[in-house]
Structures are given as structure tokens and as C-alpha cells.
Design a binder for these strands. Structure first.
Lengths: 205, 205
DNA sequence: TTCCATCTAGTACCTCGGTACAATTTTCGC
DNA sequence: GCGAAAATTGTACCGAGGTACTAGATGGAA
């Protein structure tokens, strides 16, 4: 019925909404998932859960998500909204976020939300962070920037855009970094930067 | 300087943005807080953090929050937005949500988002409740082997040798994995497998 | 048995990553 | 100012990565 969801939550229990009302609170549940049935009136059904929703956060699942439906869900008190058939990993993430008191909004809705904005002004004045690390000693500042951007998953074109230089220059920096750190390619570089590998990984394979 | 924040994060470190650029990723930080200075241009400064933002989530703090500013922050890649002087307890909650991959939207912005909606239809058909789980399901066993080997830094040839299959077959598996996980290339795949990135960096769906 | 998912593999093709020659400009200490 | 390191960009080349077709073998479910 809901393979992805079942995959994500082995201990979860499913049932028709009528068989659960009044039952939800008596269980040890800390989160309610509500799957919408498109074509039929929802708001009313969501309202049925309303009393419980004040205590239990609710995530709405839609087989074919739309922005309008998402907004309706949130206005009805939902704490999250996503695709019914989202990957199990994603569903667990949604659960974690919502259980922390956060909201999970669909991507396209977020896009609309963002595109509705104009330009604003303000300036960064301070930032914060914890510890520090070792790998970057031999690298110049610029090379560190490149390495960091690369390690976040960017390809050469994206690095170039992020740093305001040409792709060719990125190649130059990447080449220098690989040489200095004595690694073969960008993947292994990312492992080092992200702390998953030592400078010289040894043999393997 | 930031009493509430300091109260919430004893281990956090603060500094001017200029002294930190390029330094952020090399630290063990997993979250960046950016305090806006009202009246001065922001977007530019946020952009300076952009490369890091792909890996490090950023929460924007504003002394006098507005919806417009919040939207600007989100459009610049911020993962959260709240009052600089919010209670310590709230700040830790924000951190928890954002670290889970969620967004923290100001309440008034949420209200506006909700009030902008009309009525929709759909019906509740089932409800359920949860537990927790790990990463990539929906991969076959073989694909998991390939993904793990790849994520340890191996190229296709090495994966082939390690698994006793041809390079062509490795390509087939890798292609299937990238498709299933909806990622662009092996670097981003390794980030997911190694827990440095969520499947969809933003919200999804 | 039939059907379907999985694992395997081939050829071909195109893009991206990385390197090998450069060269010019910028920055900074002496 | 001078010299050195760093940053920048160019053209060209080649191998690795990734995709688009295809298709045989296997093994379990209906």
C-alpha cells in the first residue's frame, strides 16, 4: 500500500481514519501521517483530526502534490507536506524535522515563496562556528575555497560561478590541489576535506 | 554580544565574517549562524558564504525580522530565519530542525503563506505513525555494494575489480543508483552515502 | 510457465575532469 | 621598484564518467 513509508517506519501503524479517531491520543504515537485521496474533499477530514493535531503534529502525504493543496494542508494545521511516494530516507527526514517542531514544505512551494520576493538590504556582521582542522595547511586561501566548494558537491562550472572565475582557472586550482595533497581525483579530495579519508588512503582494491 | 545565543551554544564560536571565509569548511562546524546588520547590503555577504552553504546550513538572525528580509534570506540559501534575541531554548530548537534538513520560517511569514491560500479538496483516507531508519533503501543489494565502494573513493575500474565484474556493468549499476537517488554524479552520491548531504539538498516535492 | 526484477555485458557517443604546454596580471615582502 | 608566489586565462588533448540504445542469464513470484 505504502511501500516507501513502510520501509521508513517499520513500527508505524496504518489504518482508515475512522478507525483511529479517538484512538490516536491513547497510543504512544508522536506523529500522524495523513494520506490524501485526490478528488475527494479533504479539509473536512483534516478537521476531524484537528483536536488531536494540537497535541500531535501531522504530516500530509499527497500522491500528486500541488502548491495549492500544500497551502490548504498547512492552513488546516499540518506541519509537513510531501509526496506520498517519496523515498523512505526522505520520509524519515521529514519525520525528524517535524518532531523537532519544524515545518516541511514542498520544494515548488518554497520556490514560489522565494520568487515572490524582491530585493532587500542588510549585511552580515558576524558568524560563528566550532573547531578547526588540519588538511588545508599546504593550500593557499584560494585553493581552500575551491577545495571546500568542490567538497560540497559542486562541479567545475559551479565552482567557477561561485567564485566568479572561469572554469579554466578552476581546473588550474583543482590540479594544484590534487598535486599538493597527492590524490587522484576530486572524489578522493572530497573524502579528505570531509574527513572520511587520510591524505594517503593506502592501497585498497 | 549575543547573550541568548551564547546561552544556547556554549561550544559555538563567533567572529567577523571576513575572518572566517574559507575557514568554515575546514572546521568541524555543522551549522553557521549569520547575524544581519540592518541598513547594510546583505545579499552580497550571504553570497560570500554561498559555496559553504551547500554543505553547511545557515541560519540567519535578524535584530528586527521582517517577512521581506526572511524571503531574501531564504532565496539566498538560508535554511532558517529568526529573531537574533530569541530565547535560548528556541535557538536550540531552530538548530535541531535545520540540522535535520528542515527549514525554520518565521511565524508571521508562515501566517502570510497560509492566508494566501484558497480552499482545496481532497480526503483523508488513512493515518499512521512512526519510528526511525537509515539511509538509501530502494537500492538493490548489489547497488548498495557499488555505492559503498564508490563512496570510499574508488573509480569504476577499481569497483569492477573489487566486485569481480566488468567496468561496463559497474557503469550500469552506477547509472541506476544515480537515477534512483536523483543525483547528478558520483561525487554527490558519495556525499549522500557518507552522510554529508541529503538526497535533495532543499525541501523536495 | 509466464512474468518481472536483477545482474550482467556489449557498442557507441558525448560531456566532464584532469593534464600539458603555455602566458599575463596581481599581490606582497624586501 | 624588484622578485617571487599566487591568481588568472588560453588552447589542446585524452581518459574517465555517464547515457542511450540493446540483450542474454537467472531466479523468484504469480
Amino acid at each position: 500500500m505504502l511501500p516507501r513509508w513502510s520501509e521508513a517506519f517499520h513500527a508505524g501503524k496504518a489504518g482508515k481514519i475512522h478507525s483511529i479517531r479517538g484512538n490516536v491520543r491513547s497510543s504512544k504515537a508522536d506523529l500522524v501521517w495523513l494520506r490524501l485521496e485526490h478528488g475527494l474533499p479533504v479539509a473536512m477530514q483534516i478537521e476531524h483530526l484537528a483536536p488531536q493535531l494540537r497535541l500531535l503534529p501531522c504530516v500530509v502525504l499527497s500522491d500528486r502534490p500541488t502548491d495549492e493543496e500544500a497551502l490548504a494542508a498547512f492552513s488546516a494545521g499540518a506541519r509537513g507536506y510531501c509526496n506520498t511516494h517519496a523515498a523512505a530516507q526522505l520520509l524519515t527526514q521529514v519525520a525528524a524535522v517535524v518532531l523537532q517542531g519544524g515545518l516541511w514544505i514542498g520544494e515548488s512551494l518554497m520556490q514560489r515563496l522565494i520568487s515572490a520576493t524582491g530585493r532587500l538590504q542588510a549585511t552580515a556582521s558576524s558568524v560563528v562556528l566550532p573547531e578547526s582542522e588540519t588538511w588545508s595547511e599546504d593550500l593557499t586561501d584560494r585553493e581552500k575555497q575551491v577545495a571546500n566548494t568542490l567538497a560540497s558537491g559542486a562541479n567545475n562550472k559551479e565552482i567557477a560561478r561561485a567564485l566568479g572565475i572561469t572554469e579554466r582557472t578552476v581546473k588550474a586550482h583543482v590540479g594544484a590541489i590534487l598535486e599538493k595533497l597527492q590524490v587522484r581525483d576530486r572524489l578522493q579530495l572530497s573524502l579528505i576535506v570531509n574527513g572520511h579519508a587520510s591524505r594517503r588512503p593506502g592501497l585498497s582494491f
